[in-house]
Design a protein around this nucleic acid. Structure first.
Length: 862
RNA sequence: GGGAGUAUAGCUCAGCUGGUUCAGAGCAUCUGCCUUACAAGCAGAGGGUCCGCGGUUCGAACCCGUGUACUCCCACCA
């Protein structure tokens, strides 16, 4: 009755067990008197698709959560999604454009209706995909950063910070994304070296016939917004120009020539054009010298009317046109290539524009201190530890966080202004702001501050902007437990046990969560952070849609099985180190599944004959197996403690493949056509069960299947919730030694057979020494054991020619029916001898000096 | 400019406390096997200046110094 297929087929088995687990309620957690082990998922974008980064990240989390469950802890893994303000809004805008609808033609409400439709349609797909991976999340707790509870938390936090004076509205130079048409935080701008052109342009000195000053710029189109030329005060070349005026080319506007020590004399020509509206440094120079600010760009990056020329033209096109016009007018002195850093938007990849604008900021210095301290003092442990330095550097130089975004998809800022007809001013910069959880609260505030009790809510208008997505996700570890409404769950699950995320969002997310934790709970949000590396392709490129080098994650699961993919990604994922993804790894995982599967087939094929005795060789193998399980378990626990998961899974791989399959099962299995004795069968089943438990967190599906194949189980007796056995700390060194010796002999024999190309069918006689005693218990495939005492390395009588070899400290003799290559043998033996001689001399040398006396190794030689 | 890290087999990487567990794994290559659980398998082989040079030590892949080459983060120069 061979009902098991020759190959492991993951498909149906995975679906079967996942729905079984869902039905069993094993994933769900509620507070009780057990120790809590909690993880909050780094929420993927609500409309995202599963990619390799998710697979890596979530496999690690699932492994940790499943292990905790086995340890008897109350494990809770909270899933959810992020509304991903910019990314989602961009997708919706694109979708609408394809339908011929322009965002600008819609009201905010109409747009949000579309966005919610989109979210309802695609949202949660990724959560479904996580289920395919085997993620044992508590789905009853699924949260969304834009749902009611999470939104309430965001508003409360905003108002709280404002009232504590840690949040302000201010006019600053910010990073503007002209494609998304919103401001970005510093962390959302990525700098990369790019090749551009440095233009040297000459400006005429006012009041002279033919006197010029030459500046260097990469952005000629901003010349139209120049309001000064700056030179270094000590620069001898330009001292005569101090206080004079220059004429902006093409538009003939007069601008002052000023002296400012910011200017680098060595760069370019030593003369700098100053455009306060479009460069942070120029802006600061402008402040020092009270310069006019002329903004020559529109929000979309096209030239504004203030530019006077090329109005409406995109900045890149305007640059080319400007160059042409300047050249024609004879203002171009020269051009040269320049490599410099260009900031691009993380989301849209367009070049970010520095822009002066009125935005909301969090005063980070006011909340950073406890968060820095806790990490530096290992209150929160970082894995790998060296990321602490990066963290410290950022925290110590922290800058204010711009949290407003000119978008609609997100949490609208709970700030209200008096409508212009009510405030009597049209100057937006001087608007009075009233912050509150609701418009009523804001109104009360407005009445109080203005003293005008006639004001109504209709006199107020709410800030149009929404908050940065990270302003909701920094609350995630608190908000998923509804921490602002009721702290019962929070008290139990918080701080969470570990956060698993990529190091690329250490500032965007991790650091801010830590700050939020201390600001509102006066407690860390997690005890440890496991930073994963980035998943890259074989050429070390980051996986991205643009490159198309990202494998189809679901396709991989389809192809290799979830357990195979999990194994593949885990085996190569040390904390912090990048992983070069190769499908081969998943193949390895699939093959491993198949190996385990076939071990099951073997065991299941045995008939048990109750009358058979339990022989010594099998008893020895069982003793050895038990000892191995114990040491592997100890090692595994240590690996978990230090989050060395790839080492953990790799050691299980070699243990199962080599020790369990190649050695143990080979001894235990009954000879062909024979049955197993009951004790061997039972012991094997128990060993297999132990293996299932050890392997389960890494490969949950196949282990659950095997667990149920091994025995008939009561309902609910699942591998997933089977507690790890307590291993008694005793060890059995003798059995490890003996077995080690046996394996040495075995491999020596196999090597010999290989060398003489003996077919597996040909048996050969092997002469054993009478010591050690246990060796005779072992049957080496293709050998016939002849137990005798070997003296003086002579051939055993009647066995014909053959070769002798050493294994450990004992000598063996293998009889061969074919001609022995005497010279080769001699050579081999001499090499062996040399090796041992060298070995002995090195040992002896050591013994003469060493503090610690070595053990009995010198015996080896004789 | 500030900081972090890496360099070990053809490739990707382990090597944790300095020591016979010590130069290792997987992949790739080559050889022999359709051996009765598994060819997604089995048994083997070849392949190394542990980046170079100094030092500490009885002893260094490991610690220190230095040089070289890469990688990354942060800050930024028009």
């Amino acid at each position: 009755m061979d009902e098991l297929s020759k190959r492991y087929n993951p498909g149906e088995i995975e679906d079967k067990w996942y729905s079984h687990w869902l039905g069993s309620g094993h994933f769900h957690s509620t507070p009780d008197d057990r120790e809590a082990f909690s993880i909050v998922i780094p929420p993927p974008n609500v409309t995202g698709q599963l990619h390799m980064g998710h697979i890596l990240n979530n496999t690690i989390q699932d492994t940790l959560i499943r292990r905790a469950r086995q340890e008897g802890k109350n494990a809770c893994w909270v899933p959810g999604t992020d509304h991903a303000s910019i990314a989602t809004e961009a997708k919706v805008v694109n979708m609408l454009r394809e339908k011929g609808i322009k965002k600008s033609d819609l009201t905010r409400e109409e747009f949000l209706t579309h966005a919610w439709e989109w979210t309802d349609k695609y949202g949660g797909i990724i959560l479904h995909q996580l289920k395919k991976l085997g993620a044992s999340c508590d789905w009853e707790r699924t949260a969304f950063t834009l749902d009611e509870d999470r939104s309430a938390a965001v508003l409360e936090v905003f108002v709280d910070l404002y009232r504590k004076g840690k949040l302000y509205r201010g006019k600053r130079m910010v990073n503007w994304d002209p494609a998304a048409q919103t401001v970005l935080s510093n962390e959302e701008v990525l700098y990369e070296e790019e090749k551009t052109t440095l233009y040297k342009v000459k400006y005429k000195i006012a009041g002279t016939a033919d006197e010029w000053v030459t500046i260097a710029t990469t952005r000629p189109e901003t010349i139209l917004g120049d309001t000064a030329i700056a030179v270094h005060p000590d620069d001898e070349r330009y001292k005569h120009l101090h206080g004079k005026k220059a004429i902006v080319p093409l538009i003939n506007r007069e601008i002052p020539i000023i002296a400012d020590s910011y200017v680098d004399m060595a760069f370019g020509t030593g003369a700098l054009k100053v455009t306060p509206a479009h460069d942070i440094n120029d802006y600061e120079i402008g402040l020092r010298h009270s310069l006019e600010v002329i903004d020559v760009l529109n929000a979309d990056g096209s030239m504004s009317p203030a530019a006077k020329l090329f109005v409406g033209l995109d900045r890149d096109k305007a640059r080319k046109k400007m160059f042409g016009a300047l050249e024609e007018a004879g203002h171009i002195v020269s051009t040269e290539d320049l490599i410099h850093n260009v900031g691009r938007s993380e989301r849209t990849r367009v070049v970010v524009e520095p822009r002066l604008s009125l935005q909301w900021f969090v005063d980070m210095k006011a909340i950073a201190a406890p968060a820095l301290k806790s990490v530096m003092e290992n209150e929160i442990a970082f894995y790998p530890e060296n990321l602490k330095n990066t963290y410290r550097h950022w925290m110590e130089n922290i800058r204010d966080w711009c949290i407003s975004r000119q978008l609609w998809w997100g949490h609208q800022i709970p700030a209200w202004y008096l409508k212009s007809d009510a405030s009597g001013t049209n100057d937006l910069n001087n608007e009075q702001v009233f912050v509150g959880l609701t418009v009523e609260e804001a109104l009360a505030e407005a009445r109080k501050i203005t003293g005008r009790h006639d004001l109504q809510t209709s006199d107020l208008h709410q800030d149009e902007d929404v908050l940065d997505t990270w302003f909701s996700s920094w609350l995630w570890p608190i908000s998923v437990f509804n921490g602002w409404r009721d702290t019962k769950e929070l008290d139990y699950y918080y701080p969470t046990s570990v956060l698993v995320t990529g190091w690329d969002i250490i500032f965007l997310w991790v650091a801010r969560m830590i700050m939020a934790g201390y600001e509102w709970k006066n407690e860390k949000p997690f005890k440890a952070v496991y930073f994963t590396g980035m998943v890259r392709d074989k050429q070390r490129r980051k996986m991205s849609k643009q490159l198309g080098n990202s494998p189809d994650a679901l396709g991989l699961i389809e192809q290799f099985g979830a357990d195979g993919v999990r194994y593949g990604i885990m085996a190569s994922a040390p904390a912090g180190g990048d992983i070069l993804f190769d499908e081969k790894l998943c193949e390895l995982g699939r093959n491993f599944c198949n190996k385990i599967w076939n071990a099951l087939r073997l065991v299941k094929s045995w008939e048990v004959d109750a009358s058979l005795p339990h022989d010594d060789s099998r008893a020895l193998a069982i003793r050895w197996m038990r000892a191995r399980i114990q040491s592997v378990n100890t090692e595994l626990s240590r690996n978990y403690e230090q989050f060395r998961l790839s080492e953990g899974v790799t050691s299980l791989y070699t243990f199962v493949w080599d020790d369990f399959c190649s050695v143990f099962l080979e001894v235990i299995k009954p000879a062909y056509g024979e049955a197993s004795d009951p004790k061997s069968y039972e012991e094997t089943t128990q060993v297999f069960e132990e293996i299932c438990k050890m392997l389960h967190p890494f490969m949950p599906f196949i282990t659950e299947e095997i667990w149920h194949q091994l025995r008939t189980r009561e309902n609910g007796e699942d591998c997933m919730i089977a507690l790890l056995s307590q291993q008694e700390p005793s060890i059995d060194p003798e059995v490890i030694d003996t077995f080690g010796h046996i394996l040495t002999v075995k491999s020596a024999v196999l090597e010999l057979r290989n060398q003489y190309q003996l077919s597996p069918k040909e048996t050969m006689a092997l002469v054993y020494p009478s010591e050690p005693e246990l060796i005779r218990l072992w049957n080496i495939p293709g050998t016939e054991a002849v137990l005798t005492k070997l003296a003086n390395a002579t051939c055993a009588q009647g066995l014909g020619t053959g070769v002798s070899f050493l294994a450990g400290k004992y000598q063996y003799y293998a009889a061969l029916t074919i001609e022995v290559d005497k010279e080769a043998e001699l050579k081999r033996m001499n090499e062996e001898l040399d090796y041992y001689r060298g070995f002995v001399s090195s040992v002896e040398k050591k013994l003469s000096n060493e503090k610690f006396v070595a053990n009995a190794n010198p015996e080896v030689v004789e």
